[in-house]
Design a protein around this nucleic acid. Structure first.
Lengths: 114, 114
DNA sequence: TAGATAATTAACTTAATGGTGAACTAGATG
DNA sequence: CATCTAGTTCACCATTAAGTTAATTATCTA
């Protein structure tokens, strides 16, 4: 993994387990065991995933008693969104082209029917 | 790397070299050597990066003579944008909170002055 | 045909990732 | 104090990633 923050964010998001963890944290703070519950993974594996998310700045962790509650830190998600947004015109254009193509096809088929 | 398309897209984007390649392709089609030029990397390394991008569906490659021109295929970028967008309210909220916090601080400092 | 150019494939090294079980730390509670 | 709960760290293993040089394929051109 490269060390720049944006690369770290993308790398952290490249794992479906970690994305699911973030989705879970949308509902609010959760302990490690709560986060672990849906996954068929050992606790050390969960702990490592959380460390990756924390390293990317996507979550932060507190302490209360023997719990280490995690919460979402959306900063890097905004950076990812900003980076990707610069390409919006391309997919908008592509969809336009697809749309035009489909219309063209339909038009042609209608002419064929006639 | 996980095999689902969204994970593949995030993983492909987790490398600054590959992100720079995509940025280059915003300007239009380019050959492998053109893409390689700005980087201090061997051609096989470039070739591998392009294969990762192609595998993630982020570029497509044609052929004309001995050239293999690459072009941007923005589909997966839209999927990434869609995934990340679901978190927008969180960073908006955070910025709101930061904004409120800063206003509070300023207000407090003003009271201190008084 | 011979050789130059564009790019990929092969074989290999090194480092990082993702997982495990076992041992450990910290705090709550009988 | 003894023990249970929450979670991390350690030591290890298998797989994948990212890079290299050398060899190979495909196409154009003298």
């Amino acid at each position: 993994m490269k060390s720049d923050p944006l690369s770290a964010a993308f790398a952290a998001l490249a794992d479906p387990t970690r994305r699911a963890m973030l989705t879970r944290l949308c509902e609010g703070e959760a302990t490690v065991n709560e986060i672990a519950a849906p996954f068929d993974l050992s606790l050390p594996a969960i702990s490592k995933h959380l460390k990756v998310l924390e390293g990317a700045g996507l979550i932060s962790r507190g302490r209360s008693a023997q719990f280490r509650p995690c919460r979402l830190k959306p900063g890097p998600l905004k950076d990812v969104a900003d980076w990707v947004e610069r390409y919006r015109r391309f997919w908008d254009e592509s969809l336009d082209r697809l749309d035009n193509y489909l219309k063209e096809i339909q038009h042609k088929e209608r002419s064929d029917d006639a």
